[in-house]
Simulated assay, not measured.
Amino acid sequence: VKKEKNDNLSILKKSPYIQYNAKSQTKEKKPTLKELFTKNLYLQNEEKMEIVLSGQYEEALDLIYEADASNLYPILVGPPGIGKTTLCRYYAQTRAEITGNDSFEWITFDESTKPAHLVGSFNPALTIQKGFSFDAFNPGPLVKSMLNGGVFLANEINRATEYTQNSLLEPLEEKMLSIPHIGRIKASPGFFFIGAMNPSELVGTHRLGEALKDRFNVWIELDYPDKKTEMKIIEHNNPYYKIDESILEKIYLIVNRTRTHHQIQAPASLRSGIALARLTGVAQVKDKSQDPNQILKDMSRNVLFGAIQPKPGVKVKDVINNIISQVLG
């Protein structure tokens, strides 16, 4: 038990994801929350994204460029976890390098999203002092994007209610938006609206209204990537704990099997493959003598347990064991 504890401490100390301070036992002044907030304030123009651009992702990026150049609005449709949001963020980054405008706003919709979350709201205290003026107004992400002429991503747009969906009709058709008590604004040149949605048959989604569907001119369908691309993505997202090509292929086969198994209705996404690669790599660093196949078997049970949804009446553990048996024996 003591050896196992030391092994766990060792991998934590060596982990690139954890900031280990050998002097942490000494009494040092801890930073305040405000200092930590200032230090960790996210600035999107300071982060340079790198993604795997091959297969369907390269084609989708080309279509987004073409839609933007044509003053048309695209929408990406595909299952959860295939990189729709990441692709849009990457596009906003590359567009900023071309135009010099790094304005990028996005919101992930759900049942509780209201038009005010997009437009913004008035600060009650300032409204009492200054009335319903722009000085008392906290602009929402859509207003910011329209005024800056930037990119706006409506993520999981078909999880929004029809009431909230309808609030997008005017910005998409007229490039204008009404702000209560202030007036109507017109989008600055360069405003670009991108939608992203999950397949309509998934639980928690709403039917996209016909009027809203008509505003999207370019429909980009994405699915789970081909084997070569998915293995590249898994490897790209596991930079610190390298694994053998043979194990990487087995990880792909396990994840891909969840998408074809007759007893599964919601399969594993790319994130499951990335998790398996990292966990397997860490376990190999911890104990180099352990059989990689056994490690993968153990990790698969932990990762897939919450990553898949079996059909009614089917036990998730039985499905996982069946997949492990088929792929790893």
Rank of each mutant, 00 (worst) to 15 (best):
I295G: 04
G209Q: 10
R278C: 00
P199N: 06
N217M: 10
H236T: 07
Q294L: 07
Y224I: 03
L212N: 08
I308L: 05
A277M: 08
A187I: 01
P189F: 00
D226G: 07
K288I: 07
P189V: 04
W219P: 00
Q309S: 09
K213R: 15
K232C: 05
K242A: 10
R278I: 15
P312D: 14
N237L: 08
L279C: 04
K232H: 03
E235L: 01
T258R: 11
H261T: 07
E221K: 15
S188I: 02
R207Y: 01
P292E: 13
G281A: 09
I274C: 11
Q309R: 13
Y224Q: 08
M176C: 04
Y240Q: 10
G190P: 06
T229K: 08
P267R: 14
E245W: 00
Q309A: 01
S269Y: 03
M299H: 15
V218R: 10
T258A: 11
A196L: 01
H261V: 05
T205D: 07
N238Q: 09
G209V: 00
I179F: 04
S272F: 06
E230F: 03
E245H: 03
Q284P: 00
Q265L: 09
P239Q: 11
L279N: 14
V218N: 05
R301S: 05
Q294C: 01
F216Q: 07
S300V: 06
K186S: 12
G306E: 11
I251F: 07
V218K: 03
S272K: 09
N198G: 00
D226M: 01
G209S: 12
R259K: 13
I182N: 02
G313E: 14
L279Q: 15
L212G: 02
A196F: 04
R301D: 04
K186R: 14
L202D: 15
K311L: 12
I233A: 13
A211I: 07
H261P: 00
Y224C: 00
F305Y: 13
R259T: 09
A196V: 03
F216G: 01
N238P: 01
A277V: 02
S272E: 11
T229H: 13
A266R: 15
G306P: 00
P180H: 08
I295A: 11
I251S: 08
P199G: 03
Q263C: 04
I264G: 01
E249N: 09
I247V: 15
V314R: 14
A307I: 02
